[in-house]
Design a protein around this nucleic acid. Structure first.
Lengths: 344, 344
DNA sequence: TTGATTAATGATACCGATATCATTCAGGTG
DNA sequence: CACCTGAATGATATCGGTATCATTAATCAA
């Protein structure tokens, strides 16, 4: 079908392009493009004409075309373990709030604690030529690391820190935090301290927290007893189940350290259900410092993690990396806070 | 710089393109493209050669180039009010779990209950030429609607239903649900039923729930009393504050209907803190059926919303719309369940 | 006045994929 | 054997921007 000059069929579904804007403004397409992006290269008067034309046509540029040409997608891929846990929602929130004003679109993926799925998501993000990646933790598949290398995607890891990692990381020492919490619990005089941690497999945060618990015990001369530990999915119900198991199979426990507030809350519910008084009968500590934990009475003793600051700093570094800056500190420790409250 | 046949500089940062794959496989670029996408047009043997080449080079296609050419981005934009509330996280989860296997990338945005921000996000999504949009609720800015129309983006609304809407919607009647809950509370014999709802402005779900509460009261001959109602942000702390206000300023209340479990839980905490027994002193009902509510003792009476099914159905319809099917039911009511539990 | 420099704009090519149309060739038919 | 059909593949153009280099006009130093 040859288009004839006059015909402007409505059913043609032609979207407005920068050429249309340029035509209406009486300039060339490149000038229009420049006016809309790098306005300093264009006379203010021209810029206004172009902007007016763009506004009149409700022009929205095609970023696929843009990124194809200038090799920057203005997208940043973010992968968290899950969206259901609000702690990651908070981090995402703060990342995007920093990135959006700079013109970046966040691609968000959750791997549901599965490395293979993470690899798939990374592959998708690369296909969209994300300008950078923000991943949770240090643990990734070999292929994922290779792809990141081959496609040279600047990558930032959040929520844990390690000198060993291949990437820049922003977070706090999960080991140190668990170590300090456990030490604190020991210093309170608790003798038989149970531990409900997240699934260890492929999860460096869970592993580090467990290690913190264990090494703190050993440092204080308390033998580590696997029978006092449970692995739990990061969900209320699972925390409750783990607690139930501890209550029945490990009598004499006077304190439980849950490596996540969600798990701790599930454990709390379970105690509640069994008329076990917190902290009189059993003390309880969590990790993450969620809102519910702080609001509950008695309020939950926990580790406060600077979720928003992690997101903000990660976004900041991401922007620097995209700009090509490379004098960036590799390990960014934002610390944590031990919040001693009612449950211990 | 003219490229000389032999030179393959490592520092050239050249990413592998489909031409490289084609060359290695000994076919033309188009054949390579076909082999990787629409393999039925290509001899099985050829396809294998191409796949082998792609695998060897770790080829990941540039989807910007792809979508520029075939006018499909394989991206679906999803906008929810917030990620902090797990109910939306659940919906997103189920949407993406349906969309990803079909090769779609979800673009996720949260408008933080702000219509202008929603409009901005929609603009971004359109710039990426999202193949479809999934929005929460019916309330959008005029400009947003215009853009959706102009760029002809198939759009599905979730979490509320209405014949009036411009778009296909998937959800349940928030009005009906609040109506039934309120009627139930009346039937329990509660005489002075307070209401803590979400912010009404620009939020059709909040509005419909409030209307359901009000009309149920009136239908049963109970006068609607604004002094018994509060508006609250959808956060624990805000629910607690609202409850506190009700407790001090509206004595004699024997029941509170919170239009969200999060608010209800905040209210619960507040009662707990003031040694008010639930349900003996005051009954409490929520909305959403979150996990904590179900786990708490006494468990929270609430409205169960089919969050996952909403997401799934929305994804399903989105796929149909993208395929161009248009015999799609406009209003998709997935219903709700009144969960009567311990708090009433 | 002239050559040099800067500001503003434009012509053309190109990013990397695929749509479209063309071509080749094997097998079937009358 | 000429003709047609369909399967497999390829050449070329194109999507909608922008990089790159070229051009023009205006400003300025010598």
């Amino acid at each position: 079908m040859k288009s004839e000059a006059i015909v402007t069929s409505q059913s043609d579904h032609k979207l407005v392009t920068i050429r249309d804007v340029a035509r209406l403004a009486g300039v060339s397409p490149i000038t229009a493009s420049r006016a809309l992006n790098k306005s300093h290269l264009v006379k203010p008067e021209t810029r206004q004409k172009v902007e007016a034309a763009a506004a009149e046509l409700k022009f929205i540029g095609n970023s696929a075309a843009g990124s194809l040409s200038n090799k920057r997608s203005n997208m940043v891929g973010i992968i968290v373990p899950t969206l259901s846990n609000s702690i990651f929602a908070d981090t995402i929130q703060s990342i995007t709030s920093r990135l959006m004003p700079e013109g970046f679109q966040a691609l968000i993926g959750s791997n549901e604690y599965c490395l293979q799925r993470e690899e798939d998501i990374i592959r998708t993000f690369i296909s969209h030529r994300a300008d950078a990646l923000i991943l949770t933790g240090h643990t990734h598949t070999k292929v994922a690391e290779e792809l990141i290398g081959q496609y040279r995607i600047p990558t930032v890891e959040i929520w844990n820190i390690s000198e060993q990692s291949n990437h820049i990381c922003v977070g706090m020492s999960n080991f140190q935090a668990a170590f300090e919490m456990t030490s604190f619990l020991i210093s309170c005089g608790y003798k038989k301290i149970g531990y409900i941690g997240g699934i260890l497999k492929n999860n460096d945060r869970s592993q580090d927290r467990m290690r913190g618990y264990r090494e703190a015990l050993e440092k204080h001369g308390v033998p580590f007893d696997p029978a006092l530990t449970r692995e739990s999915v990061y969900e209320f119900a699972s925390g409750a189940t783990a607690m139930q198991s501890l209550l029945t199979k490990s009598q004499g426990i006077d304190c439980v350290f849950a490596s996540s507030d969600i798990i701790a809350f599930g454990a709390l519910m379970e105690c509640h259900r069994n008329d076990i008084k917190i902290p009189q009968d059993i003390a309880l500590a969590g990790f993450d410092n969620t809102t519910i934990g702080a609001l509950y009475k008695p309020a939950l003793t926990t580790i406060s993690v600077p979720r928003q600051r992690i997101g903000l700093k990660a976004a900041e570094i991401t922007l620097q990396l995209i700009k090509g800056e490379n004098d960036i500190q590799k390990v960014n420790d934002l610390g944590f806070d031990l919040k001693v409250r009612g449950t211990t």
